[in-house]
Structures are given as structure tokens and as C-alpha cells.
């Protein structure tokens, strides 16, 4: 009997939780705020679903019921992706060591 593909996805899911567990514990507490903003940005990879939905509208009707939700989701996710990564970058730029090398 073949293994249901769902089980494979479940395996990936469970293993990723473990990876996440160990990776996140190693994040230094002083970077917990950037951690939140960057996880926020990457969870917006949900945009792939939105793109599929948006591009599924047939050629004559670009905006049908389903694809318009896709377009809305793209806008929301895009706000998050750009906003999340950029604000994280902005925060991380501010973390500096003692200014020995400076000047």
C-alpha cells in the first residue's frame, strides 16, 4: 500500500516544529522584537496561495468571486512582507557594539 501524501506533509510539519523549537530557543532575548517582526514577514508566504487564487480567474473575467479574494489577500500579504522585512532590517541596523571601531 502506498503512503498517503498527507502523511509526508505531516512529517514535514512535525519536523519543522522541532526545528523551530531549537532555532527559536537559540535566539538571543535582546532580538525578540525583530524575531516577531520577521516571523510575521515570513508567515506572509501565504501570498503563494493568494497568487494562485488571483491567477485562477479565467481570461474573460479577471475578477470573479474567488479571484477577488485572492487579490485582496495579495495586498494584505504584500503589506506584511515588505513592512515586516523592512522594519526588521531597520531595527537590526540599530543594534551596534561599543564604538571601538568607530572613529
Amino acid at each position: 500500500m502506498e503512503i498517503d501524501p498527507f502523511i509526508f506533509r505531516l512529517s514535514i510539519f512535525v519536523l519543522s516544529i522541532f526545528v523551530g523549537y531549537y532555532v527559536v530557543w537559540s535566539v538571543t532575548p535582546s532580538l525578540h522584537t525583530p524575531l516577531m517582526s520577521v516571523t510575521n514577514a515570513i508567515s506572509s508566504v501565504i501570498i503563494v496561495g493568494a497568487i494562485i487564487a488571483a491567477l485562477a480567474g479565467n481570461n474573460n473575467i479577471i475578477l470573479d468571486k474567488s479571484s477577488s479574494f485572492g487579490f485582496l489577500a495579495i495586498i494584505l500579504a504584500a503589506v506584511n512582507i515588505f513592512g515586516g522585512f523592512l522594519v526588521t532590517q531597520r531595527m537590526l541596523q540599530m543594534y551596534k557594539k561599543k564604538k571601538k571601531d568607530k572613529k
Partner: peptide, 29 residues
């Protein structure tokens, strides 16, 4: 977890991995 749920629906590995990462990250925090 929401992203992971959608990831399962779309059968999309990137979403499943990310959802699990973010889910456990938030839980640990």
C-alpha cells in the same frame, strides 16, 4: 498555525515549514 493550515490545503511545503516555525516561535515566546 493559520499559515500551516492553509499550507496543508495548498499542499505547499514552504507554507507548512513556515507555519510550523512561526507557530513554535510564538509558542516559545
Amino acid at each position: 498555525w493559520a499559515a500551516a493550515g492553509i499550507g496543508f490545503t495548498l499542499e505547499n511545503t514552504a507554507l507548512i515549514i513556515t507555519g510550523a516555525l512561526v507557530g513554535s516561535s510564538g509558542a516559545i515566546l
